[in-house]
Amino acid sequence: MHISEIILSPLLALIVGVFFLGLSRKIMARIHWRYGPPITQPVIDIIRMFSQKSVSHGNLFNFGIIFSIAGSIAVVLFIPFGRIHPLSNSGGLLVILYIMLLAPLGIALSSGEAANPNSSIGISRKLLLTLGYEFSLLLILLALMTHYRTISITEIVALQQKGSWSLFRLPLVLPGIAYILILPAILGVRPFEISKAPQEISSGPMVEYGGTYLALAKIEHAFAIVIGISLFVNLFLGGANNLAFFFLKVLLVFILGIFINAVFPRLRTEQAIKYLFGIPAFLAFLGLVITVLI
């Protein structure tokens, strides 16, 4: 562990996340048969937002969004990117499970202070969605930890590098499929875009964010994308030995996510919850049982 890695890892996640935001807009435009914005458009947006005057709605409003970004950075530090793994030797999956909740919690604290009814609806939907996928995620991670007899992600990656990917190991196939099924909910893309829903509740929790706050929320979103996908890549797609290969895998999963985002319409809240507690939860539970028995 070097001090340089601690600085490098969040920076890398930020760059990749912002690049992904731009890429998603471009690919979505091409799916619509449009030319689309330049791929640097999110960077331009973020520069513009930082330059704008912003309205604060109280101390908690300022604190919550910073808390959320800090939570995201903390999660990034525990996730190995190829060979770069600043803190992932200590803690492991259990720590990630805990601090992954900090980012949505920070956003919830912050936008709750704004006292806009749309943001309250957005928060409640976001937390409900988190509750929905967290159950399956917990079962999936339990199955993984039972199978590999470790909680360290680096060890899981190393074991997969020796053998085959977890997705293709016999007892872990079912949890892998369950993870793929809940991945759109973790990323918050279109079938599960219920917390943002720009046409319905005016971008939900972000409804009162302007200027700097919106820029920070965008950055948090970029982090969230990278975290969600790289956890999946590390746990089920075998991670990678070097950085380029790792981010190639992340990119492929992300493009798959964009396709899903472009094709599906938005579910209603109760439909989303029903789905998340249905097939994915069942598959994850079955996988856990099989793993324990084997």
Partner: peptide
């Protein structure tokens, strides 16, 4: 959108 013009959900954004 190729000019960078997109609809915003709220006036704050």
């Amino acid at each position: 959108e190729r000019f960078g013009v997109t609809p915003a959900a709220t006036p704050r954004q």
